[in-house]
Amino acid sequence: MLIRSPKSWEIPTSAVTSASLYHDRPRRDFLRTLGLGLAGAALLRPSALLAATAGFPAKGNPLYPGSALKPTPEEYVTGYNNFYEFGTDKGDPKELANQGWKTDPWTIELAGLVRSPAKFDVNELVKKIGGIEERVYRHRCVEAWSMVIPWDGFALAKLVALADPKPEAKFLKLTSFNDPKSSIGQRDHNLNYPYVEGLRLDEATNELAFLATGVYGKPLPNQNGAPIRLVTPWKYGFKGIKSIVRIEFTATQPTNTWNIMAPSEYGFYANVNPTVDHPRWSQASERIIGGGIFSGRQATLMFNGYDKQVAGLYKGLDLAKNY
């Protein structure tokens, strides 16, 4: 539990222009009545469907097929979201991230200890990387619920290769967008913004680490972290930073947002581990999203079932201390 007292320079929510006014609904309605009809509506519709369109439809990666796992219904994947920039209730982001927040065009920057620092338009980046693929991954939230999600995107290792890290680079620091005008959470300062996450370089080049630009065969909806987000299926969901604008390669371990907020509850590693409890709840089992009222719980697997791929990364590391 955290109590944040607002800083003197913070503006109360009540003083903020409502999103609907800000995004000039009258103009949109005016254009509609002018008879621009569909053309006008298409020009002015929220940009969600335009985010990172390159590469679709993606080819399935046979190593991570949907046949092995039963994907969670799409309406829950896109309607039950933790994206505190757009509210703390699970239903908030679907509504509040689609009131004019622009995710197209979108630039992502590679910086820090790399030989090829660069800025890319996200669609150009996808083309440069060589397109996208589909992988069906388990998703385990630190709040002890889980989904199965078909992501579209590319291996983070490809981006690391593109950046060409210098030998002294040991970590990746990933930063999300900062736009308080579009983000009610950033106006309320419910977390330290912009949201920051980090990975060890060897974690980032692990075959599982993935940058998603889509879900369910379509460009990412805003509420799922459009246009590009991290997916690390062996870690708790909060590691999967959304709407990335910058990836910096560093020599020292970056401090991630939830670790700043509550260091005793959320660590740097955040590996899914049924034997290490959250201080306030058990991580031994999880609720299955979309399972209905009587679904009960299923046992949580070590590294969320991906121990074959990642266990080697943590040999000799005390996972109870490095949670």
């Binding site: 829950y76 309607g79 039950y80 679907k94 619920w145 609720r287 999203i289 979309g290 209905g292 009587f294």
Partner: peptide
């Protein structure tokens, strides 16, 4: 039906 409730109705209850 609200998908953010239907996702885990028992938690909502």
């Amino acid at each position: 039906p609200d998908p953010s409730v239907g996702a885990d109705p028992l938690k909502f209850i």
